[in-house]
Design a protein around this nucleic acid. Structure first.
Lengths: 147, 147
DNA sequence: TTGCGTGCAAAGGTTTTGCATGGCA
DNA sequence: TGCCATGCAAAACCTTTGCACGCAA
């Protein structure tokens, strides 16, 4: 016998907010601040629990950018299937997170599958490197700010 | 005027150990345990500081598997340049971390650079997905252990 | 009324930091 | 001797968890 599921005010508030963020990423903290600013009190534990539930239902995605920043979540619409497939590029220098939709990159999944038997999860994979802006601004300088 | 740099016993011990681990991954905790087992006392803070220094010097790589496990480090030899270039595949199901050297994948870097102006860091990037073994063992089952 | 979802606070684990001490140059 | 690196403990950080209460069904 399946567990009864309750619908709560917090669930609605949270999911409504998330749909307005379609296509961009946010952290649990972002959500908390959003509601705090509107004097709506939702406990951080509830936010984490709801986000985790939405992740396990496949309604939102969760990414790990790096170890010291909070996890990022993202809502990509109702049908976040192959059609809305995109990749994330993370700049190691400026920290920017870039969305990338690219046919050629999508073939990467096919290659990994066919040649290496590995089923890529593009929604979870993050490419690290240096973005265009940072590359051009440091073209002739090797200086990294060192303490 | 550059800061004077001191050579210490701990630095040598730590780097020596790391070179014996060439090609495999380890955490800060692994290092601590290694020395503890040999009754060599190196503070965990020192381990983190030294590992971080080696990362910033480019001598070792650091990558993040997921948010709740410790960061992994890896030493790939003196010249971890294009020639020793490889990728990391992480199975989301069994947790296995796979090393992959692949010509075609290397072209990925070129594509990202030429078409998107993004300089990929393959040593930091981890591809998430399902490995061959897990894919075949769950071919006909959709069951994920749910609580 | 039943029992799920919430909120608070405390705990969890990894990593960083302050400060006094030890040891390299 | 000067001052960097170390070690300890405490702190920071994000996230999870225990437990009592409120609220949906």
């Amino acid at each position: 016998m399946p567990k009864t599921v309750y619908k709560t005010k917090q669930q609605d508030l949270l999911f409504n907010y998330i749909t307005t963020m379609k296509g961009s990423h946010f952290t649990a903290e972002d959500v908390r601040i959003h509601f705090e600013e509107r004097n709506i009190s939702i406990g951080i534990a509830t936010i984490y629990r709801q986000l985790e539930k939405l992740v396990s239902e496949g309604k939102i995605q969760k990414y790990f950018i790096d170890e010291h920043s909070a996890a990022c979540f993202e809502y990509d619409g109702e049908n976040c299937n192959a059609e809305s497939e995109h990749f994330h590029l993370k700049c190691e220098q400026c920290g920017k997170l870039i969305h990338l939709e690219c046919e050629e990159l999508s073939e990467l999944g096919g290659h990994l599958k066919n040649e290496h038997g590995f089923t890529l999860n593009p929604l979870r994979t993050v490419f690290y490197g240096i973005c265009k802006d940072c590359a051009s601004s440091t073209k002739n300088t090797v200086c990294k700010t060192e303490s």
